[in-house]
Amino acid sequence: MKKSDLRVQYPLWNITLIIILMIISYGAVRCSDILFPMIRSLIDNDGGVVVAKIDMTSIFTVIVGLVLLVPFYSAYFQKLSKHNKQYPNDKISLFSFHPPEYIEEDEMFRQVTQKATKKVYSFYTMAIPLTIAIMLFPLNRYFFIVILWLIFIIQNLLYYKEIRKYIVEI
């Protein structure tokens, strides 16, 4: 097993996707803040002329995020097909509930996966109550979304850091 193995690198792919989704969700939150309270807020009456009220920042961030998804997914699918060709017995399926980053190659890696999962579990037992406490404050919704994305990033970093210790290359 190498450091470049997709199963080892999977948390890094997750982190990249989360960063792109953070950008998209910023625009999506701003859009929905305008859209949901009142549909009329989408249009302005400018001296008798009805004009569409467009929030450029939200539209721009959604577009940037969607554009970033294109190179991300093209690189991901390339890596995935290369991995599946290289390891026909350890294929990664897009439609599996089993996280591909679980490495169960042999008894040591099963133990390492358990250790990494335990670290993530310990992190969640602390992070979830803390997030609930922060949610008591009347802050912008995007702030809470960012906290949840950050928790997801830290989870992947913890997992990757633990697994990587055992991937020693010659």
């Binding site: 097993m1 190659e105 042999d106 008894e107 040591m108 890696f109 055992y166 991937i167 020693v168």
Partner: peptide, 21 residues
């Protein structure tokens, strides 16, 4: 039936193998 890494970690004394292994 194990990876090269597992043999390496056993040799370094950083992984204790099962009875079967």
């Amino acid at each position: 039936g194990v990876t090269r890494q597992t043999i390496g970690f056993i040799e370094k004394g950083e992984f204790s193998p099962s009875i079967t292994l």
